[in-house]
Structures are given as structure tokens and as C-alpha cells.
Amino acid sequence: MTAPRTAFAPGRFYGAPTVERRLPGVRLAHLAATMSAEHVDEHSHDDAHFVLATHGRYETTAWGPDTEGPVLVYNPPGVVHRDRFVEAGGYFLAVSFDAGDWRDFSDGRGAIDALRLTGPAARRAALRLTRSLLSADAEPLSLEGLSLELAAEALAPVRDGDHPPPWLAMAESYLADAFDQPIGVADLARVAGVHPVHLARGYRRWLGAAPGERLRTRRLERAADLLMHGRAPIGEIALASGFCDQSHLNRQFRQAYGVTPGEFARLCGRRPDVSCVQDDTRAGA
């Protein structure tokens, strides 16, 4: 008698998570493979998901060209497959969407078979998402937006006009007004009156950045302005600009501008308090 195929619950794989995040509508995980190739049988998943093999040789039964470079696969809910790492030591990103949510926002346009995604846009979105997930201070909005950009690669293309759509200005205006508050992709989509997937794709096309990147830019701009013209300690500036704490601001500021907030303040002629200078020696490391 043939043994029943394994049907994995949402967000579960042949792997042990090294990092895992649960966001509205999507589960993200970076996992270490736990099963050798010969022990991986045909199986399915209850959710729609993407897998990016970040380390190790990965074999997939998905349809698509067998190309060099990172292996990126989309599996619709319930599709039977036998994807596996050939050797031990594999690592992979998994991006999982609840089956009901996936049906809702794909509106029947999603592929019904497993696909191997080899286009540069799909790989770029998956690699950006991996980098963001593994960072110490990944913004939920950034993770959501990048997840939806990746999802868009498995959906039928949508025609866009030759000029930025009016909804983009509405979304940007909302970001400018509410940058210091928790913001999700759904919030931006609701304000703009478009679908979250359409919003994520539009941001990348017209602005060259994900919504989370635009949010981070706006927060850094506010922090820089306060550092130039205010006298508040850097810790207070961090909170006023929407960052979790001073260390969070220090990392993001130095990554964007190449200097710490304290160094920037001194370059602008400001002489911060002793408590402000500590970002250079401790929190900014």
C-alpha cells in the first residue's frame, strides 16, 4: 500500500528556521535544510509559497528553464512536488502566503503549476527580501512590500501607463505625514485605492524602491533635519523620526550616509551633548 504524501501546514518545510517572521498575510523564514535528498518524498503544502535556495545545490520539479544562478521556485497551494537539496548543508528562504489570501489577491491570475522563476526582477526581489529578513532591524513594511513584489512575479503581468499613476502621489503623501507611525502595505494600498500587489510593483517601477525603502528614507530625512536644526539628544531624535531607538537610527544613518548621527551633527556645526556623542563609540558599532 502506498504511503500517503506529506501535506505541510502553512509555513512548514523540511527545514529548521534560523530566522522567522510572521506578518499580516505572509510568513517569512530563512531555514537550514534538515532532510537529505534520498529521504525527501513527494509532498505538498497547504499554502502558496516561494523558495529561494541561498546555499547548496537545489533540485526542483517545477516547470521552467534550468539556468545557473540562485534557484527560485513558486509552488501554488496543494501542488505535489519533490524539491530538495542534493547535499547536506543547504539553506533557503521561504515566503508563504495563506491559500485563501493568495486566491483573493491573485484574483485567479496566479499560475496553477509550480514555476521556476529565472527573471532578474524575481531574483532581485527574493535576494532583497533575504537580505532584509536577515538584517538586525528589518522594517515590517519593507518585508511586506518585498514579499508582494516577489508574489507579483508569479502573477500575470499588469499593463501600466507611460506616466506615474495618481495613486502613487497619494501614497507618498501619506508616507510623508505618517512616517513616524507603524505603517503596513495594506495601509498604503487602502489610502491609494489599489491592490497591495499593484502598489508594491508600482513603487518599484516608478520610484525604484520598495515602500519600506521609501519609508526609511523619509525617516532618515527627518532625523537629518532634526540633527541639523535641533538640540535634542540623538535618542530623542531617533524616536521622533520613527526609529525604535538610538542604535536603530545609528545603523540606518551610517548605512545610508556613511557617517553616524553624531558625526553628521558635528559636520553641520552642531555640538551635541555628551549623551549624543555616544552613538559613535557604542550604539553606532
Rank of each mutant, 00 (worst) to 15 (best):
residue 126 A to Q: 10
residue 275 S to H: 04
residue 170 M to L: 15
residue 119 G to F: 10
residue 276 C to F: 00
residue 151 A to W: 12
residue 41 D to S: 09
residue 190 R to C: 07
residue 73 V to H: 06
residue 62 A to H: 07
residue 34 T to N: 13
residue 4 P to I: 07
residue 280 D to I: 04
residue 71 V to E: 06
residue 92 F to H: 05
residue 199 L to P: 01
residue 261 P to Q: 03
residue 261 P to I: 04
residue 39 H to R: 15
residue 209 A to I: 03
residue 60 T to G: 03
residue 40 V to Y: 05
residue 223 A to I: 07
residue 38 E to G: 05
residue 137 D to Y: 15
residue 51 V to W: 02
residue 106 S to V: 12
residue 68 E to C: 06
residue 224 A to V: 07
residue 259 V to W: 08
residue 35 M to E: 14
residue 15 G to K: 00
residue 101 D to K: 09
residue 40 V to Q: 04
residue 208 G to E: 10
residue 62 A to W: 05
residue 55 H to K: 14
residue 130 T to F: 09
residue 95 V to T: 09
residue 127 L to R: 15
residue 164 P to S: 15
residue 103 R to D: 13
residue 226 L to G: 01
residue 185 V to C: 11
residue 183 I to W: 06
residue 52 L to P: 09
residue 238 A to M: 05
residue 246 Q to Y: 02
residue 167 W to I: 08
residue 50 F to R: 02
residue 109 R to N: 07
residue 174 Y to G: 01
residue 248 H to P: 00
residue 160 D to V: 13
residue 225 D to T: 00
residue 19 V to R: 13
residue 263 E to T: 14
residue 193 G to A: 04
residue 172 E to A: 04
residue 205 R to L: 14
residue 225 D to H: 01
residue 90 G to E: 00
residue 132 S to R: 15
residue 213 E to T: 11
residue 114 A to P: 05
residue 44 S to N: 00
residue 178 A to R: 13
residue 189 A to P: 05
residue 88 A to L: 12
residue 5 R to F: 10
residue 263 E to L: 04
residue 42 E to Q: 11
residue 77 P to M: 10
residue 249 L to S: 11
residue 184 G to K: 11
residue 222 R to S: 06
residue 190 R to V: 01
